[in-house]
Each structure stands twice: as C-alpha cells, then as structure tokens.
Amino acid sequence: MLEVRNLTKRFGGLVAVSDASLDVPEGAIVGLLGPNGAGKTTCFTIIAGFTRADSGSVRLNGQDITGMAPHRICGLGMVRTFQIVQPFAGLTVQENIAVGAYLRHDNRRDAMAEARAIGKRLGMGAMLDRPASSLTIAGRKRLEIARALATGAKLLLLDEVMAGLIPTEVTEIVGIIRQIRDEGHTFLMIEHVMQAVMSLAETAYVLNYGKMIAQGTPRQLVRDPAVVEAYLGHGAAARLQEAEHA
C-alpha cells in the first residue's frame, strides 16, 4: 500500500534520514522504532508531505506522492497524527472530528453525524459536546485518531500515540487500533512503548542515525544485536550475551 524508497534528508550538515526504505502492506500494522533523534518523525513528515526529501520516493497505492502537499495526500487516503497532540482548542470534540469528516461530507449535518458515529466507535460518546481543550492526554490521543479516521483515510500514520499514557490507557488504545485495523485500515506507527509495539505490530523497522538498521517481527528485533546496540550503546549486545551465558 505504501512504498518508501531511499529517502534522504539533510538539515545542513546533519543527515536526518539516510537512504531509508520501508513497505506497508494493506491491512498491516507496521512499527517504526528507533532511539530518540533517530529520524523517525522526520521520516513521517516527509511521507505525509510536510517536509520535502532531498532524494527518494514515496508511493501510495502505486501512485507517486513524493513532494505532494499534505492536504492532497490526505485526499488520497493517507493521514498523519501528531506526536504533540494538536486539538482545535476552540471547538468541541465533535466539531474537531467533524473537521476531518468535512473532507468527504460537504454539509454540516452529515459531517457532524459522521463525527458523532466515529466518536462513539472510539469510546468518546460522553465527551462529544465538551470543548477539546478540556480533554486529558489520553482523550486527546483518541481525538487525534478519531479526527484522522474521519477523513476517510485508509492508511493512518500514528506518531507516538501511546507516549505519555499510563498502562491501562495503553491497553485501551491498543484495543481501539486493533479494532480499527479489523475494520479495514492500515497503520504505520512510530512507537516507543514496547508493550504496544509487541502486541500490535506484525513487522517493524528500526531507524538509527537516519539509517534503517533492522527489519523483522518485534520478537526478532529485540534479539537483534544491531538494535540492542542502537538503544544501549556499542558492545551492549555482546555484554548481554555474556550475562545470559554466565
């Protein structure tokens, strides 16, 4: 569904993303992992059209969308959420979701009805009339997903949607994401919370210093020496193995 090939992005002397490629098949939940500063969010902003890559290409359903404006990409069925949640503070929860729904509905009544339905599906029924600014972090994360879903997009890019949540909230969101996937959506998610990655993603990519250093199932990845070293430092994998054998 999504094919990313050889993305490279430099900020001055810093190579934020270097020759990164990944694939997201339809119906999958794919994780994008990596330590802080590895270039995950930069990768996301490029895929979603917010930043231009220096080289490389992004294809969505076979169509080249490299360098396309975000609103057009959204119209083609791929939408991103933000790591730092960005609700429209002056609007109610339902109106927030409706902003997304207006992409497919041109009048207020339809958009608001769609927003209500999606809000309920995501367990936000009781909050619909509240101002978005009154939501807790967990509520705002849900709102990000609801709004993205309301655009009718089939591929959702989630940027650290679990960050800052307590374990029970993580479990709830994991359930919601699984439910949405089963309804026919595809996910690419940046995630730090391993509990979430392990239980959701079938495949994951690991980015370090802008380069893809590993790919596989989450279970394979946590045993991959290159991944362990990316997180824990050079030589850590060997020391861990020694510790296991000792």
Binding site: F50, A69, P70, C74, G75, V79, F88, V99, R147, A148
Partner: peptide, 14 residues
C-alpha cells in the same frame, strides 16, 4: 476555525 486553531493539524486533515 481549524486553520486559526492549528494550521499543521488542519493541513494533515486534508
């Protein structure tokens, strides 16, 4: 209003 409140989020939503 979406543009007023948050332009990046607005762009992301199409």
């Amino acid at each position: 209003v979406a543009v007023r409140e948050n332009e990046d989020a607005a762009r992301a939503l199409g």
